[in-house]
Amino acid sequence: MNKPNAPETDFWSHAAGLAPVLIASRDLPSGIAMAGGFLLAYASALTTALFLPRSMRGKLSFLTSCMVAVLVLTLYASLVRAIDAMLFEKLSTFLFLIPFLPPVYVAAATQGTEANRERAWEQALMALALAVFVAVFSVVRELVASGSLTLFGTSGGRSILPSMAHPAGALLTLAIGFAFARHIRSLISRKSR
């Protein structure tokens, strides 16, 4: 029971850790708002963890980084509210979850060593890739669920699977996307041999 499977690539592990954000990203505007929130929370947690004084390393550094991420996200939520109150109402439940997602936890737990500071751009790139993934994921979900993209004013599309708009749809899309990416990767590695 609970036997961990073969370790997955970093990207997909982090993408799976974003499950609550993916559940909330039903359409492109939500996807963009959630991706922006994730980027900000991740960047603030990582920056705080990397540049805190040496005396604050360990649990205190982790706690401080998490709290900075929560504070930044609270401000970001106010910005979303000012831009689009309806969108904020729809997402507020999920926005405050972002600082508690595994990728942000991992960023907050980074030790502020010189080596980690030099490699920070790798983590920043990963965060950027994950944010793009959230936006693309929301586009796919919206297209499959409603057959159109609300942000671009297209309508009258043909819905393929309306249930993809439900939270369960996010888990199903994630599973299928994961399996598809794995299949493509195995095909490429087979060809290269």
Partner: peptide, 23 residues
């Protein structure tokens, strides 16, 4: 189970179907 679905995808798929029933 097809190889690409082993591990995490199968888990998410099962969870998705359970969530659909729960919804």
């Amino acid at each position: 189970v097809p190889a690409p679905f082993h591990g995490l995808p199968a888990r998410f798929l099962s969870a998705g179907l359970m969530a659909l029933a729960f919804s």
